[in-house]
Amino acid sequence: MAYWLFKSEPSTWSWQDQQDKGEAGEEWDGVRNYQARNFMREMKLGDKGFFYHSQKEKAVVGIVEVCAESHPDSTTDDERWECVDIKAVRSFKEPVTLDQIKAEESLAEMILVKNSRLSVQPVTDAEWKRVCEMGKTDP
């Protein structure tokens, strides 16, 4: 299993919106960055990801699971753009902020720290475990 991070502006698509979709999940559509798209092409059913609120909150707030592998993005007719579907798994007991992540020496190489603008990004096993520990949440 691989781990990922999905960033969303809560005013556009919030953790609550994701949870409200239930088991059916929702397309992670609208991504127009080739690197992020390529990461989604690598994803497999059952892969887990952090749901990250960007903008003011800047925090990991939940865990999601890939429930449909890469397919054409329904928000465009441009065949270059693909997306996955994700479903909510559980909320973090305590959100983990970007400032907390940046302050954690073991997370210094995390892509979120080095390239915070990338909307879909991989997370290593060690990063996954540490952020879950920080959020007092079962991985």
Rank of each mutant, 00 (worst) to 15 (best):
R130L: 10
E105K: 14
E65W: 06
V120K: 00
M110S: 07
G22L: 03
L112Y: 01
E9C: 07
D29V: 06
L5D: 02
T137W: 12
W15E: 07
S14M: 11
F50R: 02
I111L: 03
S74R: 13
L5S: 02
G25I: 10
V66K: 03
P122L: 01
Q35C: 09
M1R: 09
E105S: 12
E42C: 15
L112G: 02
E105L: 10
H71I: 00
W4F: 09
D85I: 04
G49A: 09
Y52A: 04
G62F: 08
C67W: 00
E57M: 08
E27F: 09
G22Q: 08
C67E: 02
S74G: 15
A108P: 06
T97Q: 11
F39P: 02
L98K: 01
F6D: 04
Q19C: 10
E79D: 15
D138S: 14
W128D: 07
G46Q: 11
D29G: 15
G49C: 09
C67N: 13
E42T: 13
A2Q: 08
A24R: 15
L118G: 05
P10A: 04
G46C: 09
Q35D: 11
P139K: 10
E79R: 12
M43P: 05
L112F: 01
S11V: 13
A59K: 13
S54A: 07
E23T: 09
Y52K: 04
K114Y: 05
Q16R: 13
E127N: 10
A103D: 11
E127P: 00
I111P: 03
Y52M: 05
F50T: 01
P10M: 10
L98G: 00
M110P: 04
L5V: 02
K102R: 12
S74D: 13
D85V: 03
V60H: 05
N115M: 09
I101L: 12
F92E: 09
Q121I: 02
V131N: 01
K21R: 15
V64W: 00
E69C: 12
K7A: 07
Q16V: 10
T76F: 06
D125L: 12
R80F: 10
P10T: 04
E82K: 08
E127R: 04
D29P: 07
R117Y: 04
Q16I: 06
K7I: 03
E42F: 08
T124A: 05
K56P: 15
G22P: 07
H53Q: 08
M134P: 04
S119V: 02
R37I: 11
F6V: 12
V96D: 05
D138P: 12
R117A: 09
E79M: 12
E23S: 12
V61F: 10
E57D: 13
K129Q: 14
K87W: 03
D78I: 02
K7E: 03
E23F: 06
S119N: 07
V113F: 02
L98E: 01
I86F: 03
Q121W: 02
L5A: 09
K58N: 06
E79L: 13
Y34Q: 01
D47M: 05
W28N: 01
L5N: 01
T76A: 11
E104C: 03
E109A: 15
R130P: 01
P72S: 10
L118W: 00
W81T: 03
